[in-house]
Design a protein around this nucleic acid. Structure first.
Length: 197
DNA sequence: ATCTCGATTCCCT
DNA sequence: GGGAATCGAGATT
């Protein structure tokens, strides 16, 4: 039933891909069960000229190296003890990536997600943030550099998203003009979105 | 070796 | 809406 989208899907312009990812299904097949949910919020980070990106000015370090790889490569990093999930895109050596910020989980895996996220006071808090969804889906740093079109962590077709909102990215106040770029996309009125305008 | 500062989350007011 | 928690990457000495 869940068929991974082919690598060619990730070979489209970054902003278009950030929008195309909305509604797609993220699946993680783990030892304690399968978790799956629709991507409902994304953010684009566009390398050399985006001051908010780790790869700003083509900064190339051990951490950012995977951003220079092929479209469809997974980029995970830790921020304030939380793991964040990104999909590398654009051509090789152009360090763009898309941050997955929120997931609408399928009903059947909610019990499993609750076990992993004790702090959640309601269903929305299970996956309404980039660190939360990684904790809920048990996504860790071992996926850094792997491919998002291969199990056990992959993306498949999902649902249609009717209303898409574009807005400013979250948590980058100190990045000059880049803080005002409308490079965050989410499904309007979806309760799993981390921050709605 | 040391310093700074987050692509966050949680708890409190 | 504000502040603490918390720790590693990247820059600086």
């Amino acid at each position: 039933m869940n068929v991974p989208l082919s690598q060619s899907f990730y070979n489209q312009p970054t902003l278009e891909l950030a929008i195309a990812l909305l509604g797609k299904k993220l699946i993680h097949d783990t030892d304690d069960g399968i978790c799956e949910g629709y991507i409902v919020e994304t953010e684009a980070y566009m390398g050399p000229h985006d001051r908010a990106a780790h790869s700003y000015n083509n900064r190339r370090t051990a951490r950012t190296e995977v951003m220079f790889g092929e479209a469809g490569t997974i980029y995970t990093y830790t921020m304030h003890t939380h793991v964040l999930l990104n999909i590398v895109c654009a051509q090789k050596n152009i360090p763009h990536a898309i941050l997955i910020r929120a997931i609408e989980p399928l009903e059947h895996c909610i019990p499993l997600l609750k076990e992993r996220r004790k702090a959640a006071k309601n269903n929305a808090q299970l996956t309404n943030g980039p660190g939360k969804l990684c904790q809920a889906f048990n996504i860790n740093m071992s996926y850094n550099g792997k491919s998002i079109f291969l199990p056990p962590l992959y993306i498949a077709e999902g649902k249609d998203i009717k209303q898409i909102v574009e807005s400013k990215r979250v948590g980058i106040e100190n990045s000059g003009e880049a803080k005002d770029f409308l490079w965050r996309f989410y499904e309007q009125d979806n309760v799993y979105v981390s921050k709605r305008d």
